[in-house]
Design a protein around this nucleic acid. Structure first.
Lengths: 265, 265
DNA sequence: GATAAATATTGATTTAGATCAATGTTCCGA
DNA sequence: TCGGAACATTGATCTAAATCAATATTTATC
């Protein structure tokens, strides 16, 4: 009944790549590029160390910060993957964002001085952190850091707009197709295999992100499989037709561009 | 059949206040505060004029900028109200944000150097504009401007999160109730009557913002009226029970805070 | 102030997706 | 590698909201 077992990515399921967890994003592709020393920028190392601390490990399921905590640090994800959740008070939760290596976290907490989401690791991850109030210690360099931060925030706003359009206008199948394109593109821009991969998030996570029931996501994936654009077995995924996925997602040209390239490289 | 005619705000419907259009936001409540000269900050006027140009009028229905245009200016809304739309390609459109006096526009265009939405005036409005690339001309002042811009962007991200949670988790009645609370709070923080007002947007605008059909919004408003928490006749609106509206909106405590105070005053 | 056009309301019907429920599969720690 | 718990799939039913359709009201313009 299930011919998936003949597919290469299923036959050796135990040897699945844990791509995001196993390799770190290079500093020059990190949201804190410009802040950190290595990228050929000559900075006073001691000064820098007052601001950035590097590579804190984060175990699966453990929180980076929680909703309501006072804001102090911006974080950059170096490896692994994170999810930002908001509890709805009635046992359920909504995921308002997934984060992959190079992404910045905590941007929405700057103004209010409190975090608004609980961010947890979906797999073994590591982060660098930056003390936001110490940025002025960088003196003449602070301007260029602020400019880069503004760029990153602008980019994030654009992306969250994309999510919001998905929730407001697209059908279940369109949302799920768009989501797979989105995740695939996140892998691609990081130079990882993007047509055959393992999802770090559960069906429930996807459902909570797309504003759907878990069962509906499952059915949609089965539907996409029947249409021959992708195959899933649990979290193992193979995209067989990017073009077909795009057609089914029915994104506007502008949204398509966004879903393909969400970072500047 | 309709006892609304006995309500004060309906009996003299032609004399409705056009609150947002008729008064300008003061500069010290404007998103460009810190950029402009008046607020007691002494700045080189000539330098400033290279960066900010003031009070451009905008007629009803006319666009401030359109999706796809190259980005050059950030705008601050001085009076009136604007809507940011995205066309879905099939005749429909989604509204991704409403803007009221003091709000900044174009933040999501900085990174990409293109505007992503078409912003149109819902009523007679006026804006100031700022040439983003000229900010460095401000020399030593640029750092404080960037910091303020980051605050404004962080605040906006928080608010767009609110919208996104509304779309992802709330029912029709909850969305519409939350929307009315939102608009009311926007009036309140600007010192305008917030329990009896005229909506600048159509039912379709509200529907396109909340991801609902226009008819559904209309029915939801009738339902809220039947429950006695507000009364509407066309765009004239009277909120009779803020508390009742809050109960029906079923926002989490955190979301409630956001819907009540979306600016820092 | 009259008239046309735009906007809003209400009703009837359909449908996409939620919910309830049962079974099957994957995965992770011992 | 085993076994139990977490996760995923699939089916049946129900329901909220979309859609289709007709009418009423408001608003803008002459």
């Amino acid at each position: 009944m299930n011919d998936l077992n003949t597919l290469p990515f299923v036959s050796n399921a135990t040897a699945q790549p844990k791509a995001l967890a196993s390799q770190e994003v290079a500093c020059d592709h990190c949201g804190m590029y410009g802040m950190c020393g290595e990228a050929g920028l000559s900075r006073d190392t001691q000064m820098l160390e007052q601001v950035v601390s590097r590579r804190t490990p984060l175990a699966r399921h453990s929180p980076l910060f929680s909703a309501g905590e006072p804001f102090q640090y911006l974080y950059a994800l170096k490896s692994g993957s994170l999810a930002a959740k908001v509890e709805d008070g009635k046992g359920g939760s909504r995921i308002v964002g997934f984060y992959f290596p190079g992404d910045l976290l905590g941007l929405d907490a700057i103004e209010d001085r409190h975090y608004h989401t609980t961010v947890v690791a979906m797999e073994k991850s590591s982060v660098c952190k930056l003390d936001y109030d110490s940025v002025p210690l960088l003196g003449e360099h602070q301007g260029s850091f602020y400019r880069e931060l503004i760029q990153a925030m602008s980019n994030r706003m654009m992306f969250e707009r994309w999510t919001s359009l998905l929730l407001g206008t697209q059908s279940t199948e369109q949302r799920v197709a768009a989501f797979m394109l989105y995740f695939s593109s996140q892998l691609k821009v990081r130079g990882l295999p993007h047509l055959e991969f393992r999802l770090p998030m559960t069906r429930r996570d996807i459902a909570d992100y797309l504003g759907l029931a878990m069962e509906t996501v499952s059915r949609a994936l089965s539907g996409l499989q029947k249409k021959g654009v992708l195959a899933t077995k649990g979290r193992s995924t193979q995209i067989s037709s990017l073009q077909g996925l795009h057609k089914l997602a029915e994104l506007t040209p502008e949204l398509t561009a966004l879903s393909l390239v969400s970072r500047e490289d």
